[in-house]
Amino acid sequence: MSQRSEPLPRIRVRPLTRANLSIQLTLLGLTLLTLYSFTTFDTRGIGLVEALQDMLNNFRLLLLEPRLRSVSFADLLEALFVTVGLGLLTTVFGAIIAFFLALFAAQNLAPIWLNNLIKGGTAFIRAVPTVLWVLFFAVAAGMGSVAAVIGMTFHSAGYLIKAYAESFEEIDAGVLEALRASGASWWQTVFQAVVPTSASALLSWTFVRFEINFSTAIAMGATAGAGGIGFDMFMASAFYLDLRELGAFTYAILVFAMALEWFATHMKARLGKSRE
């Protein structure tokens, strides 16, 4: 019973490894930085209460009192149509280019050196944000809708090639083997086995990209002068300083985004039904 007198050593649930230590040190550093930044804010003499009141007032104007002034409702619809058009066009262009390149990027359909070439290239395209591609093409095409279409198509294709190629790679290798064994050529195998098997996955990815492109198209209207509702919002906020009109645009976009979501869900449900 002499052992009882010795205190038992504490059991650590998480051993103090290098990884744990570095995580804890990082968290500590971030906390100190945050505290430091709070003490050095340049508030320009505006009180916290006053600022909060102003902010809530702005939200009230934006969300509770929306109305149009510089443009008519018809103008708003037309601007929305332009933005949707930009999103849809770049998605369709991107999807067509991506479909063919993704076939050569899939490991089960093309030689490995070609896979790596295309995958490497698209990784580079995706690493650069869409806005930068638009500005890059604006050098040649000038600021406006042309640069926006080319730049957004570029990035959409890069994104969809990766998504499509991964869908293709999930196809059962046996099915491809069976068609080859019956004497089918490569293109026949693609359209008779690869496309029917991966159709719903391709549709899903394309819808996701359309949602992304719709919101990018709004931003492009303002930053790249591509027109549409983004440009009207830019004018309402930066030129007319009209929060009520900005609110009306925001609601218009919200309604369309919800309609799009409903449509996408509905389409997927219908595809699922025919699959049963």
Binding site: G174, V175, E177, Q192, A193, T197
Partner: peptide, 8 residues
């Protein structure tokens, strides 16, 4: 494993 295209 039959290797049929299941969706067709």
């Amino acid at each position: 494993h039959y290797n049929l295209v299941n969706r067709l």
